[in-house]
Computed example of a mutant assay.
Amino acid sequence: MNRSLLVIDDDQRLGQLLQEFLGREGYRVLTANSAEMALEIDVKVDGLVLDVMMPGMTGIELTKMVRDNKTVFAPQIPIILLTARSEVDDRIVGLQAGASDYLPKPFDPRELLLRIANILPAQIMADLVYGGVTISPNTGEVMRDGVRLELSEREHSMMAKLAQAQGEPVSRDILGEVSWEAALNSRAVDVQINRLRRQVEIDPANPRIILTRRNRGYCLAKPDPVS
């Protein structure tokens, strides 16, 4: 099941842009234009992305309410605060209120994506099976006919990211930044995917596991049904 997020920001355009961007990366995203509107949403979500400066209740006030268990949200839910104020004192106030992380505006959506991934609790996901190939979404480990493939750290990270997306396309930008090593450009990501296909696929020229989604990136095919 895809992870779900609630983006709370009085800037409706930003909320829509984040909904589209995060949605493309596999998240189910709800939006609210105010803290008051968010409190009326009775849907379980895995994380909150919350603007600090909003008319009415501020993001800091809502964060405190969540941590004090005075809302519909779980008190331990991960919270990222967004704000145009980037002074150290402002960040300290947000973190003291209980925020999990703090991101100054303007920001690159890719940085927000990485911060979200860092604060959401890890999910233990079942292995994906494709005939004789088994892929672990948790580690990126690949077994072929019972033998573990010797993949690099970056290749493990790429396979884990693709497997965790559960069939949704993962962009080249995201795949290029999954490792602690230097980021890869789009062409280098394509080269890395081709290397993975040569190890994983029976016929790398006609892949059946690691698929290309034009203008969107790469995804894994639907795995064999669980017996």
Rank of each mutant, 00 (worst) to 15 (best):
D127S: 13
G26S: 02
G98Y: 03
Q19N: 07
V170R: 03
Q16M: 12
R213C: 03
A97M: 10
S4Q: 12
G217D: 02
E153V: 15
A221R: 03
Q123R: 15
P55T: 08
R110H: 13
F21D: 00
D42V: 11
P137T: 09
N2T: 12
R3I: 00
Y218N: 05
L22R: 00
N215F: 01
F73G: 09
I8E: 01
M57V: 10
I116Q: 00
E181W: 03
D203M: 05
R28A: 10
V29Q: 01
V45P: 08
C219I: 01
P75E: 02
G59E: 04
R144N: 04
K222M: 13
A117G: 09
E153H: 10
E150A: 15
D10A: 12
L196R: 05
E181S: 15
S100T: 15
S100D: 11
S186C: 01
R197Q: 08
I209Q: 00
R115T: 06
E20P: 00
P225A: 07
T63H: 01
T83K: 11
R67P: 11
R198F: 04
R198C: 06
S136Q: 07
V142P: 02
L50K: 05
L6G: 09
D108S: 12
V170S: 07
S86I: 05
R148L: 13
P204G: 10
M158F: 08
V133C: 07
P169G: 09
V226C: 00
R24M: 11
D46F: 08
A126V: 06
D42F: 12
A122C: 04
D127H: 08
D203H: 13
Q12L: 14
P106D: 03
N2L: 03
V200Q: 02
S4G: 02
G23T: 00
L103A: 11
V129C: 12
L113V: 02
R195G: 04
D89M: 13
P55R: 05
K222W: 00
P225D: 07
Y130S: 07
D127Y: 07
A97K: 07
R172Y: 04
L184I: 04
